[in-house]
Nucleic acid binder design. Structure first.
Lengths: 337, 337
DNA sequence: TTGAAAGCGCTAACAG
DNA sequence: CTGTTAGCGCTTTCAA
């Protein structure tokens, strides 16, 4: 029964008129007589005709596809952002093609090349943690294809981007600790070449200075962003002669790594030590006590990124802009004495 | 500087030969002289030529796109499956277009229609929880387009599918409880029109009978698959004259809902009550004590679904098959007395 | 060994 | 008001 998609030609021959008449009738061209228009549209509906997007694409040189590259699409953070992008894209009749860089520069470069080959009309991406130079983005910039970066961004003078206020996030956490009466506030930082990490570390120090606490280097430890390594960093903190009474992780992973180390150490939260970090509601409320956390507006990040994308698609000559979204501190049991 | 993608025509005119010569040279056609072939390929490489997939698609009537429909792409479970599908698709030079049905039949039907309009070569999907009839799948079946269902499946006599052994999952949990010495084993079930729920409930009863425990109806409660409702169901269990000493949730959500209710009730796990359910490693190890859980081979589900898809694409007349993947019980602290 | 021409499905300029 | 034609980028017969 295998029936193929039908074409204008099929409709035309069935109605014994020319293809162009059918084409015009379908888009209500004023040149076509009302009766003909009605007849054509009726048949099209009956036969369930839909135009072939490949033919249209070839003609108009547009694929209606947006390439999306993320370090990893399984993480809640990124999948939620993707969902935001998809939401906007769908409204505009665009589709997205998702590729994962797995945080590898090499893979990221391949993704860009592949997407370009598929003739996507542009790319929305978050850089891999390995990416420090941007030769692979050149072709996009040269061809003036819309490019929007989010979360992990770069070249902000050339490329539009969406970020969250990372510095504010950690500053808010540290101030919150202080207001709750904690005075020995530690920070588990991460790979310092990442802009995001730098910002969050800055926010921590900013708050420490702001409230007039001593700037103690030993309360600032680093990890390589794995749970394992964050747990080790936490253990180092706990072994200090005067261990901290509050700790903030630099990322989702770092925070939960710290949490595990604290549990293993047998300390009670939030009495002996307070914990806070980055997590969505679901994860924050899964642990006991519930985790005080910074909530990222992931869906909005995606939505904004897509919005910037279409802005640029429609107006390629406009200056790049950066949208900074605010995060939200949600105090929960892990830091309420 | 906006340079467009170049075409065979561009190469041809630069070399002052015909388009067809270039076309043939690029695919090492034997008719073309070795020198010409070399010259053409050298230029193509230098100019970074890549064929226009739209033109190819139009010609061959294939888009190299697979539609993927999931109830929700943010959940770890589905995003991980998608990642498995994508992995295989990429290997074969295919792209996937992801749509979310948000567990709505109406949306699901729209997704199918949209994807069909885009001329995807087939669809891989998990049905929405509302979907009980399948008129929207007719066009796919009629046109003999490859269709593969996973997790939530139907029409298995007409359509290939990938499922996990749900009955075994809950059976394993209940047997595990029994082996650990628990005797009052409860089950929080869910919307009973779902095949998956039925299977899991069956597995529970099967184990109860197998070990010779009394089949107590009051240990079998239902929820509507939200955390809230699962927590309420759990509270109902706890209010029984003889409350259970072990409980298994029918799903990820139900399990964590139960867990919360137990915590609120102040019971200690695993001494006063054991808990087990469905969760990936990350979530199972986030809670204390770590949760005994059934681990789903999500990536493999995606991989298998894609494999079946391509099998069908290459051999449309073959009989539909069903792949049943095994789950893995990972015992952790929440059920070890 | 190479080129010319048709055709995949569609639109739009140009004729009639 | 409707039809003819060219062309988007590519492959593939058929001719030379």
């Amino acid at each position: 029964m295998k029936k193929k998609h039908l074409s204008l030609k099929d409709l035309a021959s069935e109605l014994k008129v020319s293809i162009s008449t059918v084409s015009r009738a379908l888009k209500n061209h004023p040149d076509i007589s009302p009766e003909m228009t009605k007849k054509v549209q009726a048949l099209a509906r009956k036969r369930n005709y839909t135009p072939n997007p490949l033919a249209m694409g070839l003609l108009r040189q547009q694929t209606k596809m947006i390439g999306v590259i993320v370090p990893d699409m399984v993480t809640q953070f990124f999948s939620s952002i993707i969902s935001g992008i998809e939401h906007v894209a769908k409204q505009r009749g665009y589709y997205i093609i998702i590729s994962s860089s797995y945080d590898s520069f090499q893979k990221e470069r391949e993704c860009v090349e592949n997407l370009l080959q598929t003739r996507v009309e542009g790319i929305i991406m978050s850089l891999s943690s390995e990416t420090k130079n941007f030769p692979h983005l050149r072709p996009l910039i040269d061809r003036e294809l819309p490019l929007v970066l989010f979360d992990r961004v770069a070249l902000t003078d050339k490329v539009s981007s969406v970020v969250v206020n990372d510095r504010e996030s950690t500053r808010k956490i540290a101030l919150h600790f202080y207001n709750q009466g904690y005075r020995r506030i530690a920070f588990i930082s991460g790979a310092s070449h990442l802009q995001m990490v730098k910002e969050r570390a800055n926010g921590y120090w900013e708050a420490i200075r702001e409230v007039g606490l001593p700037e103690k280097k030993e309360y600032f430890v680093e990890c390589n962003m794995t749970q394992q390594s964050a747990a080790q960093a936490m253990m180092k903190l706990l072994r200090l002669p005067e261990p901290p009474d509050a700790v903030c992780g630099v990322s989702h992973t770092a925070t939960f790594g710290a949490l595990k180390a604290i549990r293993n150490g047998g300390l009670t939260i939030p009495n002996e030590i307070a914990v806070a970090g980055f997590a969505d509601q679901f994860h924050a409320e899964l642990v006991t006590p519930n985790l005080t956390s910074i909530h990222h507006p992931t869906f909005e990040i995606g939505r904004e990124a897509a919005r910037l994308f279409f802005e640029r698609l429609e107006n390629p000559s406009e200056m790049p802009v950066q949208v900074v979204l605010n995060t939200q501190l949600v105090p929960r049991g892990s830091s309420l004495k």
